[in-house]
Write a protein that binds this DNA or RNA. Sequence first.
DNA 1: ATTTTCGCTTGCATTTTGCAAGTAACATTG
DNA 2: CAATGTTACTTGCAAAATGCAAGCGAAAAT
Lengths: 145, 145
Amino acid sequence: MPRKKASPKRRSRCPLNASVEILGDRWSLLIIRDMMLRGFRTYKEFLDSYEGIATNILADRLRKLIAHGIITTQRNPSDGRKVIYSLTPKGIDLAPVLTEMVLWAAAHEDTGNQALVRQIQQDKEKFLNAAWQRWAEANRALRQP
Amino acid sequence: MPRKKASPKRRSRCPLNASVEILGDRWSLLIIRDMMLRGFRTYKEFLDSYEGIATNILADRLRKLIAHGIITTQRNPSDGRKVIYSLTPKGIDLAPVLTEMVLWAAAHEDTGNQALVRQIQQDKEKFLNAAWQRWAEANRALRQP
DNA sequence: ATTTTCGCTTGCATTTTGCAAGTAACATTG
DNA sequence: CAATGTTACTTGCAAAATGCAAGCGAAAAT
């Protein structure tokens, strides 16, 4: 399968612009944060997350993230109501972006979650490896239920 | 002076959320890119940038970036019409964020500007240092006109 | 003196977002 | 097995953000 899709009518071919068009809104990266750092995988978990996304916006963002190949879905075989969302390789590759955004805000804004911030500051590589390993492990568990 | 401002009514205290609230739209990071990588400093330059921002949106984003302490303005003494925008230290500190967003899109989307991308891939630190040095030099020139 | 340039503002249509109230499919409970 | 609860959504509508075109005042160029 092809690794990169031809981009449908972008404003420009600048890679930063591509990122901004895909991720530049007030919710997408928070959903990805919840999946990557908090292990959230269901609609209800995202909906109940602290920032309070509206249900129609959540449905829309999940649809777009799927369309962009950042997340995928599968049904939970033991509970037919539940849909399990998970990050694709393209999705977990956003870890460095999230990491730098956390560091920037922690350095220049009044924010919380200092435990996470210090962990990243102390050893960024270790933090990124850990995130990747959690992702790999969760995927393994999903394939062998 | 205080390094961090108390944040007015954020959705949450998560540092990623702070970044998203400040930068999470379709234009802010492109303006910062134009300043950081292309050396743009005037309203007209931003307006004429390839993606085609609308003039009212540009004025609004510049106002917000100033309010967040990411850019500052000064009048051009040799041409009283021109306003010179430049990145603050908080603004140039966004370089790692932009860098990772460029790398992610270059890896997973069909994008251009491969010269820039390869430069970053080959030596990220060197690229970041160069960006910082260009910024320091431009600031020096501005103070001694 | 007139025209052009620059950095905006204003008005208005379109799009996106947010809120509240459904709903269909499945699972649990009595 | 019927009633109730859960889950993942959709729908309708108001409010806010965005985009487009036109205009405008101050300064500079001609």
